[in-house]
Structure formats: C-alpha cells, structure tokens
Simulated assay, not measured.
Amino acid sequence: MNEELKVNASALPRSHLEAGSTENVSTAVSSQTPVVESEPELVVNPWDIVLCTSGTLISCENVVVVLIIFHNPNLRAPMFLLIGSLALADLLAGIGLIVNFVFAYLLQSEATTLVTVGLIVASFSASVCSLLAITVDRYLSLYYALTYNSERTVTFTYVMLVLLWGTSICLGLLPVLGWNCLQDEATCSVVRPLTKNHAAILSVSFLFLFALMLQLYIQICKIVMRHAHQIALQHHFLATSHYVTTRKGVSTLAIILGTFAACWIPFTLYFLIADYTYPSIYTYATLLPATYNSIINPVIYAFRNQEIQKALCLIGCGCVPSSLSQRARSPSDV
C-alpha cells in the first residue's frame, strides 16, 4: 500500500510542481526587495512668489537710498537721517520677505521660521515708526521754523531713532523669546507662528500710530495754508496763485496719508479680527498691498527730495541739471 502511494505521488505532473515552486520563489524575492518611494514634488505657492518678487523690488529701491545717504556727507540733517531710517527698515523688510521664501521651501525648521518672521515684524514696525518720526519732524520744522536747525533738533532726532528701533526690535524678538504658537496651534493668528495676542498688540499699536499721524498731518495742513496765505500777502500774489499753492500742498499731504492708509489698514483690521482658521488667500490678499507701501516710500520721501535728486544725478551722469539747482522750495514741498 505504501509503495502504491509513492508511485502515485511520483506520478503528479512535473510542470505543476515547478510552477508552484516558481511562484513561491517570486513571492519570497518580492517580499525581500526594498520598495523605492518617490519623493513628493515641491509645489510653490504663487502668492509666495509674488511676495518674494515684491521683496526683491523693495530691496533694490531702498538699497539705493541707503547708499546715497550713507556715502554723502552733505545728507546728515535730521530729515535725511529719518529718511535713511525708513529706507533701512524697508530694505530689511524686503530682505526678510526674500529670506522667508527661501527658508520656507529649502530649509524648513521652527528656528528659521521664528527668525524670519521676527525680522519681518521688526523691519515693518521700524518702517511704520519711521514714517511717524518723519511726520513729527515735518511738523516741528514748520511749527518751530526759526529754531528747527538747532542742536536740540538733532538730539531729539537721535532720541526718536533709538526709541523707534528699540521698540521695533523688541516686537520682533517676541516670537523668538517664546511668544509663539508652535506648541498650541489654537492660539495662532493668520500669520504663523505669531499668536493672536501678538497680532492684537501690533494691530492696535498701528491704529494708534495712524491716528497720531492723521492728527499731525491735519496740523501740518493748517500751517501750510497759513504760510501760503502769508507769502501771498507779502508778494501780492493773486488769489488764484494762493489757492493753487495751498491746494498743491494739501494734495501732497493727502496722497501721502491716503497711500499709507490704503496699504496698511486692510491688513491691520484683518490681522486684528481673523485667526488661523481663515483661508490663507485673505492673508495674502491683504498682506501684499502692505508690502507695496515699502515700494512707494522711496518715491514719496526720497526720490522727490531735491538733495537726493542731485546726488542721483551726480552718480548717474556726473552733473546736476539746472532745473534742480535753481528750483526753490515752496510751501507744498512738505
């Protein structure tokens, strides 16, 4: 009986046995072969590209202003120191936007995020504070016209610079020193890793500075109108000339303040009321116009200035056009 079973077993089709063994071998080999996973493709947010481009333009514009003021010994008056402070703050803001883009896609870590966001917060805070300092300086130059060029004005300017940069640096260091939402996502604002409390402080501070600037510009408008009226009486100008001169000065101030408000107010209000649950497109749509203010600042405060225009002409062509050397300062040049 056993011999019969052996014969029957040996009579099984040889091809069936080979197929079964081949299948077992292939299964074993496939189980031992490591699976190579393809790396996910890097997807770049178009909004981040636009912000990086905006940062590049900001840097290129403001580095020109910083170099002109730094290398020209004739531009050491308080007004130019404040314009240089504004240009330096905007330059750092532009660099911060570029560095943030690079780190976000090439070197992602909590440390780099905290440093870049802190740099952006500090630089934009210094930019807004420098705008307020320029407004204060313009008000003092008109209100105390006879004593403005004294040593006291220079000292006051340096005090303003120390205060505004000290405050801005402190605001920028808050995320690095631990005031961030990396450990608790529920406390995040629309700009990670800033907390909602940090966002509230920045927004309320900005609204306070804007209200102060608005009040100062109203006073400047009154002084400009009064000066233009006195000049018109002294030179026996026609009423039309007086009206044109005054309107030009008021229009300039309105453009300056209106541009500042249009750029910053939307993001400030959104930054104050929104949190991390809101769609990111709203953050980008309000933050981008705020960066445009740093693009416009050199045009309004630096390139319109006669002395800086002369310096640019000397660098560009080595000469100063007669239209610049003969132009007199008017009450509208505020």
Rank of each mutant, 00 (worst) to 15 (best):
D48A: 13
E37I: 07
S189H: 13
H235K: 06
W47L: 04
R76N: 10
L88V: 02
I296L: 15
A126K: 02
S26G: 04
L92T: 07
L164G: 03
V334S: 01
A186K: 15
M160D: 08
H198M: 15
H235A: 00
R304N: 15
Y217N: 01
C263A: 12
G178W: 03
L86K: 07
C52T: 09
C52D: 03
L209G: 06
S150P: 01
N24L: 15
S130R: 00
L140Q: 08
A28W: 09
G20L: 13
P331S: 07
S280L: 01
Q32F: 13
Y148C: 03
P40M: 07
E61Y: 05
P193Q: 15
N100A: 10
R329L: 11
S31M: 14
L114E: 01
S123G: 03
I300M: 15
I134Y: 00
I281C: 09
T155C: 12
S251P: 02
L216C: 00
P266V: 01
N74R: 12
L114D: 00
G55N: 11
F156Y: 09
S85C: 11
L272C: 02
L140C: 08
G249H: 09
T259P: 03
R152G: 05
T240V: 03
R329A: 06
L182P: 00
N305K: 14
L81R: 12
V159S: 10
V66K: 00
D184H: 12
L216V: 04
L82D: 07
V7T: 08
L114R: 03
A199D: 13
L106V: 07
E307N: 04
P279L: 06
I256F: 10
T153I: 08
V159P: 10
I95W: 10
T22Y: 14
L312F: 05
L253W: 06
